Computed example of a mutant assay.
Amino acid sequence: MILLIDGNNLAFVSNSVGALSRSDGFPTQGISNFLKSVRSYIGLFEANKVFIAWDGGKSKKRLARLPTYKEGRAVEKKTPEQKMNLEEVLAQIPFIKQAVADLGLYQLGGPGIEGDDMIALMAKKANQMGEDAVIISSDSDFHQLVTPKVSIYSTMNKKAGRHITFDNFSKIYDGLRPDQFLEYKALQGDTSDDVPGIKGIGPATALKLLTAFDSVDKWRHLVDGGSLNPNKTQQKIIDGWETFQLSKALINLHTPLADFSTAKIERQEPNWGAVRQMAVEMQIAAIFVDFANWIKPFKELS
């Protein structure tokens, strides 16, 4: 089993739980929870390989198509609380990355490459090789990648639907198939990434159209052929067709708008002593008190 972890997503989620800090006030809950979570996922899925992807900046190809892409994530648009959380995460990420390297885990990334695209590329390779993979992230964009071999496990503690698989996908999404999810989300857009979607089209309308006509393209073909008259709500899709196509291109992880020329997969030999020393310096007792037991799952990775 391969774990494909959305590093930035897990770092932000990890920093939002608890309030651990070093004696001098430096935040450590992100570091502690991140490593705790990775260790837990290895055991939960009996993983033999772990890949952690990091964001290397916004995709230039996406920005060329939509200059306002992810504009809402700009620091100046965040609340004071969001800014503080961002500062804490950014301060801890270098320590997380070094710990991950010293644990002997694979790290993915490159300048101008979004972490989502790296994970999508690795998921595609896992499918091609017939290997099982679990994507660890709360980002629903990944749901379009679900196959019999690839599943999604959320970093958020959801009461239901945390582990989305090929077998339970339709139940979770009320009859929707994984191959329909891209259009399902493109119709609605994604405010977190400033992907527009079509105004007035929500989950219910998108689901109804896709379950009835299989795909938006098939529905549009029937409309253009004169055998189907769109209702008032569906007319919004026709009026916003170019916006729908743009949204679809922006969030498509099957053929992402990405340049992988700077992509790297890095791994070094484990340095267990360095991991323990980091935990001591960061005063993360949960790691160094019983270090021999804590490190065991990582030593068992291939």
Rank of each mutant, 00 (worst) to 15 (best):
I2N: 07
I2G: 00
D6T: 05
G7K: 04
N8A: 14
A11N: 03
G18A: 07
A19G: 13
S23V: 10
F26A: 02
I31G: 01
S32P: 00
S32A: 08
L35Q: 02
S40F: 12
I42E: 03
G43E: 14
G43Y: 04
N48K: 12
N48F: 11
F51Q: 09
I52D: 00
D55L: 05
K60G: 15
K61N: 10
R62Y: 05
R65C: 11
V75C: 12
K78A: 11
P80T: 09
N85R: 08
E88P: 01
V89I: 15
V89T: 12
P94T: 06
K97M: 10
Q98S: 15
L105W: 03
M118E: 02
I119K: 01
A126D: 11
N127S: 04
D132I: 08
I135A: 06
S138I: 06
S138P: 04
D141T: 00
H143M: 05
Q144F: 01
Q144R: 03
Q144M: 09
L145G: 00
K149S: 08
T155A: 06
I164N: 00
I164F: 04
T165P: 13
N168P: 01
S170N: 10
I172C: 14
L176A: 02
P178Y: 03
F181A: 09
A186G: 13
G189A: 11
D193L: 00
V195P: 01
K199N: 15
G202E: 15
T205Q: 12
T205G: 01
T205W: 01
A206T: 05
L207D: 11
D214K: 12
D217W: 13
R220E: 10
H221K: 10
L222R: 13
V223Q: 13
D224V: 05
D224N: 09
G226K: 09
G226C: 14
N229Q: 07
Q234H: 08
Q235E: 15
E242L: 12
T243L: 10
T243H: 03
F244C: 08
K248E: 13
L250F: 02
D259P: 05
K264I: 08
R267A: 03
P270H: 13
R276L: 03
M278N: 02
E281Y: 06
M282D: 01
A285L: 05
I287N: 00
F288T: 15
W294K: 06
I295M: 13
F298V: 03
